[in-house]
């Protein structure tokens, strides 16, 4: 059996990998109870000059807060709304426990921020030894996975609309309408990055949509001039390996450094 080791991003080296959630504002009783139930330490930054090991920054989803959370000493960022960490996937905490980096944002925030840019920069900075070629392939794949998670996963918009100018206009209308629905816009997109042995980096992208059958989708290859439907086959070309989990709600992409 292959040995799985975990090379941790800077600032995330810790003997005790119990994740901590660091928040700026005094946490509500509800958030405290949620964290307690999950076995996560909750820290308020004014009481904690040095973040504990395996800290995840929590707060409003802004470019600055995401950038801060994705850099040492933090191991990730979680957007916190009134619902606290309800809805955050356990995979995020497990990733941090395993020495990786996590990001959990609501759909509207993924759309509003330059999420791809922020995550790609963080991966390059936190996980060493990635060749330029691999970094390019990782960005290409991540872009496709994020697009799928938002459009098809969380917003449930079908593919076929974007084939003509008129279809694109219709697509935009549906996208805006669904983004205005708090239940859909509040669904989470989560990105979890971990090393697998010395040679591989795994990037998982999860959504909270209906899921899909990856093999069935991959079996239908888009033609060269198709205006949609090439995202997954593009990811397959760009990754070392690709598989789906959680009923197709998580895409796990492995890259050779």
């Amino acid at each position: 059996m292959a040995t799985v080791t975990s090379s941790k991003p800077p600032g995330c080296h810790a003997a005790d990998r119990r994740p901590s959630l660091m928040v700026d504002a005094p946490p509500s009783d509800d958030l405290a109870a949620q964290c307690h139930a999950l076995g996560i330490e909750l820290c308020e930054s004014r009481n904690c000059l040095v973040p504990p090991p395996a800290s995840i920054l929590g707060g409003a989803g802004t470019t600055e807060s995401v950038r801060t959370g994705l850099a040492p000493p933090y191991c990730g960022f979680m957007e916190l709304g009134a619902e606290g960490v309800l809805g955050v996937g356990l995979r995020c905490f497990e990733t941090v426990r395993g020495g990786g980096m996590t990001l959990s944002l609501q759909t509207a925030t993924v759309y509003r921020l330059e999420t791809l840019e922020l995550v790609a920069q963080a991966i390059r900075a936190n996980f060493g030894g990635i060749s330029q070629d691999t970094a390019d392939l990782m960005e290409i794949s991540l872009a496709e996975a994020l697009s799928n998670a938002v459009i098809h996963g969380n917003l449930g918009i079908p593919n076929h609309l974007r084939t003509t100018t008129e279809g694109f206009v219709q697509f935009q209308k549906i996208m805006h309408a669904r983004m205005a629905d708090p239940a859909l816009a509040g669904r989470r997109v989560e990105i979890n990055v971990q090393t697998r042995g010395p040679d591989f980096i795994c990037v998982g992208v999860s959504d909270q949509g209906g899921g899909f059958d990856l093999n069935e989708k991959l079996a239908h290859t888009a033609t060269a001039t198709a205006k949609n439907g090439r995202g997954l086959s593009l990811i397959r070309k760009a990754t070392h390996s690709l598989h789906g989990e959680d009923g197709g709600r998580t895409l796990v992409m492995a890259f050779r450094r």
Binding site: A143, G231, L234
Partner: peptide, 18 residues
Amino acid sequence: LSHIDSVGLGLLYIARED
């Protein structure tokens, strides 16, 4: 252009066709 994804590429195909 810093990034393009398959949705963006699809838009270029639409532009080309138009």
